[in-house]
């Protein structure tokens, strides 16, 4: 997962969407009839967009993959809202995690140009933002803050782990 060219991004879009809706949609763990743990990997697409992508375009692409996920999840708008949010906060996450001497112009988010630890933290923040916003939208009321935080705390680490593994496996090829 290294390519910064449009084709690689389009392939990532299709591949991640496919994996999300056909494989990871089946996986959910819960307790007492309440599903608490999900795996979201579509934020990976947003995180892997090249650093020099214009910010409005990031938001629009994020919306597109979220909307695509929604079409299969039958939750029209929920993933789109969360993905749009993740696309918007990407610029702030990048600012927070910026290295001392700044980013290289052509840098890609995943590991090659930047240290592995940076990549892990960056992905964690992106996934955390995505999950928090998604579960907030799903509950749709601050009354359910317990559910929201519990689901976010369970889903984020698992999704993060899956994403990291996925990227390590596929890195040289796409």
């Amino acid at each position: 997962m290294r390519g910064a060219d449009p084709v690689s991004n389009v392939i990532r879009f299709i591949l991640l969407l496919f994996l999300q809706v056909f494989l990871f949609r089946q996986i959910s763990l819960g307790y007492g009839g309440k599903e608490l743990l999900f795996i979201f990997i579509t934020p990976l697409f947003i995180a892997l967009l090249p650093l020099r992508t214009p910010k409005p375009l990031v938001v629009i692409f994020a919306f597109l993959i979220g909307f695509g996920t929604d079409l299969f999840y039958e939750t029209l708008g929920l993933h789109a809202a969360a993905a749009t949010f993740a696309g918007y906060i990407r610029q702030f996450v990048l600012t927070i995690l910026a290295p001392k001497d700044g980013y290289k112009v052509k840098a890609n988010p995943d590991g090659n140009d930047l240290p592995q630890s940076w990549w892990l933290r960056y992905l964690g923040l992106m996934l955390g933002g995505y999950c928090l916003f998604y579960f907030s939208m799903e509950a749709f009321s601050p009354v359910f803050w317990k559910d929201i935080s519990l689901k976010t705390l369970l889903t984020t680490p698992v999704s993060w782990l899956v994403s990291v593994i996925l990227v390590s496996f596929l890195r040289p090829r796409i």
Partner: peptide, 20 residues
Amino acid sequence: SFFTFCALQVLCFYLIINHN
């Protein structure tokens, strides 16, 4: 990006409220 974000969030809210 902020205006895009706001516009898309409005659209998302519309979709959420009308389809869920």
